[in-house]
Structures are given as structure tokens and as C-alpha cells.
């Protein structure tokens, strides 16, 4: 079988797990990925087809019916010596149609379809899943299965901003010195309890029924639709000075919801708070460990990452193929 970049192109379908830095949109990250992959593939294609850099033209297939064979005449101009000698001297029958300088890159950006399975906002960093080519289907399944995600959100007490994030304009200031970690933990536990109560109310089953009992016996369950954000676990990791970090295990959330959550925490503690950073540390079975930094994006690393992701998905089938409302 001839070496061809097409083999690699065909193999390049599946889910990859990348790291999204803050202050860049998912859209531009996707574009960056596509550009990088297509460029690498096209370069590889040229390298495989024309291993000898001097001999850039491809000899034509030995088909007598081809009427497009061109005999390049040795030109008698001043450029003869300076032009790439391979074209004029080495081979006489050359089909120039496939010359890399004529056809250009083999893989164009629009050939590679990529879609994301979780959307992270502009200010959020962390684990992001992309589906490449036929992997976009899996990306869709993962997205529609609404798997749980874990976030590490840092906030700061004392100031409230107009957009809830540190970049916004300060609209309110307050005291925060009286707050201690126990206060925060109390509030968080109360919030978590109310969410767990709410999930049964909107689960679609009568709370007094046998079904509801059986579901509850199995553990936490998923909400019935993708509209309502539900928090399963809230934990204060550390608190020093005005800054604090909480870990949120949740479903159906978005960036706005998390900033509002921090704002609410501030208000419940009789103070004000704004978010300083949001990081997605886990998406279903994918963690930060699996995520590939943008600077490491190249063909080799991405295929490796894809392998690892498909293995992970095989081990955790429920991510793609979900059978019950019970959270796992």
C-alpha cells in the first residue's frame, strides 16, 4: 500500500480532549485547531508524495490515453540555469496538474468538520471536548446526554461588578472581614440541599410514588430537561483574605450561571462578591490530565489524544449511551 496522507486523514475521526485557556472563545479555538491540523496534513502530503525536495513534479502515470502529457521543452532563456533543474532536465513527461505549487494544499479548512460537545464561555478555562469528522456525532451524543461537570470557581468578597466578573465595572463595595470558612460552608450546604430537593420536583415523577422512591434509593438523578441547572455538590476548598475557591459539581450550567452563583453567595453572606476565574476541571470522565494544551497541538499528539479518548469512552459507555436517569 502506498504511503499516503489519506490514511491518516481517514483515521482522524473521533473525540479529542483539549485545554481551553481563558479569554479566548471556543469558536476561535476550533478554528485554530482546524488550521493547524490541515496545515500539518498538507505538509505531510507534500512530503510523502514528493520525498525528494528538488524533484517537485510528479511523473505521469503510464497511461497512453492521457492526452494531458506535456513535454517541457528546454527553454533557451536566461532563466534556464536558475529554474529548478528537475523540471526541465530530469523527466521529460510531466503532468504538472499535481504539482504542489499548482494545486495548493490538499486539505482545506472547510474539509475538516469539528464540533464541540461542551461550550465554555469566554472567561472559562479548562476541559473541552471536540469531535473531529465523524466524531462530531459522538460529540453530539455527549452534548445531548448532559453529563456532569466539575468546576473550580474562584471569587473575591467585598466588591460587586456589573457583569459579575473581575473585568466588569465595580458597582458596589462592602465589608467582608467577618466572614470565615464555616460561614461559607454553611451557605453552600444549604444551597446544595435545596438543589437536591428541586431535582425531584422537576424530575417528572410524583414525589409520593413508588417510582420516585426507587429512583431516590439509587442515588442522585438527572433533571428532566436541559434547561434547569442543578448542583450536586458544593464545597469550599479554601478561603484566605477576600479570595475564596469553591468546587461545583453540576449539570446544565453555563458561565453566567456560575457567576450568578458567586454573586448569590456574596449576598447570602451579607456582603458582595465577584468571580475572578472559572475552570472546568472535569467533564464526565475527562479530566485536566487528559487535556491537551494548545501549544502541543500537532498531528502526533492529537492522534495520541484521540486514541486515549476513545479508550476512555469505551470504558465509560454511559457517556455516549445513557440508559437511566440515575447519575453515575
Amino acid at each position: 500500500m502506498p504511503h499516503d496522507s489519506l490514511l491518516l486523514w481517514k483515521a482522524l475521526q473521533g473525540i479529542i480532549c483539549v485545554y481551553k485557556p481563558a479569554e479566548i472563545s471556543v469558536k476561535s479555538l476550533r478554528k485554530k485547531l482546524i488550521t493547524k491540523l490541515c496545515k500539518d496534513l498538507s505538509e505531510l502530503d507534500v512530503k510523502l508524495r514528493h520525498p525528494n525536495p528538488k524533484l517537485t513534479a510528479l511523473p505521469v502515470s503510464s497511461d497512453p490515453h492521457t492526452n494531458s502529457i506535456v513535454e517541457t521543452e528546454s527553454s533557451e532563456n536566461a532563466l534556464e540555469d536558475i529554474s529548478s533543474s528537475a523540471i526541465s532536465s530530469g523527466i521529460s513527461h510531466i503532468d504538472l496538474r499535481y504539482h504542489p505549487l499548482v494545486v495548493g494544499p490538499r486539505y482545506l479548512d472547510e474539509d475538516l468538520t469539528v464540533s464541540w460537545s461542551n461550550f465554555l464561555g469566554w472567561n472559562t478555562s479548562g476541559v473541552l471536548l471536540f469531535g473531529l469528522r465523524s466524531g462530531t456525532q459522538y460529540a453530539k451524543f455527549i452534548r445531548e446526554n448532559r453529563s456532569t461537570r466539575a468546576y473550580r470557581v474562584t471569587g473575591s468578597f467585598g466588591k460587586a461588578t456589573d457583569n459579575g466578573f473581575k473585568t466588569g465595572k465595580v458597582v458596589e463595595k462592602s465589608t467582608w472581614k467577618y466572614i470565615n470558612q464555616n460561614h461559607i460552608q454553611q451557605i453552600l450546604s444549604a444551597m446544595q440541599a435545596s438543589h437536591q430537593k428541586k431535582v425531584f420536583e422537576i424530575s417528572g415523577v410524583d414525589i409520593h410514588s413508588q417510582t420516585a422512591y426507587e429512583l431516590a434509593a439509587k442515588g442522585p438523578i438527572r433533571p428532566v430537561n436541559s434547561e434547569v441547572p442543578i448542583i450536586y455538590n458544593l464545597k469550599c476548598l479554601d478561603y484566605e483574605g477576600p479570595g475564596f475557591t469553591i468546587e461545583v459539581q453540576c449539570i446544565n450550567e453555563n458561565e453566567n450561571y456560575l457567576t450568578t452563583l458567586i454573586h448569590d453567595i456574596g449576598i447570602r453572606l451579607h456582603s458582595t462578591a465577584h468571580t475572578t476565574a472559572i475552570k472546568c476541571i472535569r467533564h464526565s470522565c475527562f479530566t485536566l490530565e487528559h487535556a491537551l494544551l494548545p501549544k502541543h497541538w500537532n498531528l502526533q499528539n492529537i492522534t495520541k489524544n484521540m486514541d486515549m479518548c476513545s479508550k476512555l469512552l469505551r470504558d465509560n459507555e454511559s457517556v455516549i449511551n445513557q440508559t437511566s436517569a440515575v447519575l453515575n
Binding site: S68, I69, V70, T72, S75, L79, S83, S84, I87, S88, D95, L96, R97, Y98, H99, L101, V102, V103, G104, P105, L108
Partner: peptide, 26 residues
Amino acid sequence: PGAVSSMYVNKSDILQQLLKLGVELY
């Protein structure tokens, strides 16, 4: 990209000469 030039390149002398100079026709 490359569609037009790959259709003309085998017939057109000028494109071949430019190719020799290393012009990226696409």
C-alpha cells in the same frame, strides 16, 4: 484553490514558466 491553475497549467506556457520560478499558482 488550485482548480483553475491545475486546469490550465498543462496547456499554458506562461504558467509553466512561472512555476519554474517557484510561483505559488494556487
